[in-house]
C-alpha cells in the first residue's frame, strides 16, 4: 500500500463515518460537529484529486462559512442546555422504509458507477489549478460568475429582510 492509497482510505473513511454520524445521531450539536469532520475529509479527497484550490475553498467556505452559519442557526433556535436540542422522533416503520430506500439507492448508484463507461482522457497533472480556474471564470464562465454575484446580492437582501426583527 502506498501513501496515496492509505490517505484515500483514511479520508474516505473519515467522510463516510462522520457523514453517517450526521444523519444518525440524535443530538443536533453532535451532528453539526460531525459535519465538520466530513467536510474536512472531503477536502482531503480533493487534495488527492489534485484540486488544490477546491480543497482550500472547501475548508474556507464550508467549514468557515456554512458550518458556522448552521451552528448559529442551531444555537438561535434551540436551547442548548435543555432536552430540546434532541430532534423529534419518527416512527420505526418509516425509519425502516427510509433505510431500505436509502440502501436501494446506494446500491443502484454504486452498481451504475462501477459498471458504466465514463468519459475519460489522459490527464496532465497540473502544479496548480488556480491559474486555470481564474482564467475560466473570467473568460468562458464570465456570465455565470457575474450572475452568481447577482445571486449573492439577492440572497443578502432576502436573508436580511426575512431574519430581521419586526419594525
Amino acid at each position: 500500500m502506498d501513501l496515496i492509497t492509505i490517505a484515500f482510505y483514511f479520508f474516505g473513511a473519515l467522510t463516510i463515518v462522520f457523514g453517517a454520524v450526521v444523519v444518525f445521531t440524535k443530538n443536533i450539536m453532535h451532528a453539526a460537529f460531525s459535519l465538520l469532520f466530513t467536510f474536512f475529509g472531503i477536502a482531503g479527497l480533493y487534495v488527492l484529486l489534485s484540486a488544490d484550490f477546491l480543497a482550500i475553498t472547501q475548508i474556507m467556505i464550508y467549514i468557515g462559512g456554512i458550518l458556522v452559519l448552521i451552528i448559529f442557526g442551531v444555537m438561535l433556535t434551540t436551547r442548548i442546555t435543555g432536552v430540546e436540542v434532541k430532534s423529534g422522533k419518527i416512527g420505526k416503520v418509516q425509519l425502516a422504509v427510509a433505510g431500505l430506500l436509502t440502501v436501494l439507492i446506494a446500491a443502484t448508484l454504486i452498481m451504475i458507477f462501477t459498471t458504466s463507461n465514463w468519459y475519460t482522457a489522459d490527464s496532465v497533472p497540473l502544479n496548480s489549478t488556480v491559474n486555470e480556474i481564474g482564467t475560466a471564470l473570467l473568460t468562458n464562465y464570465l456570465l455565470a460568475f457575474e450572475a452568481a454575484s447577482m445571486l449573492l446580492l439577492i440572497a443578502i437582501v432576502g436573508a436580511a429582510f426575512i431574519a430581521r426583527k419586526k419594525h
Binding site: I16, A20, I28, I70, A98, G99, A106, L109, T114
Partner: peptide, 23 residues
C-alpha cells in the same frame, strides 16, 4: 464515485427522516 454514492444516499436518508429543519 463509490464514496460519493454513499454520501449521497446518507444525505437523502437524513433529508427523509429528519424533522428538524436544520438537520
Amino acid at each position: 464515485l463509490i464514496i460519493s454514492a454513499i454520501l449521497f444516499s446518507l444525505g437523502l436518508y437524513g433529508i427523509i427522516t429528519r424533522k428538524h429543519a436544520i438537520m
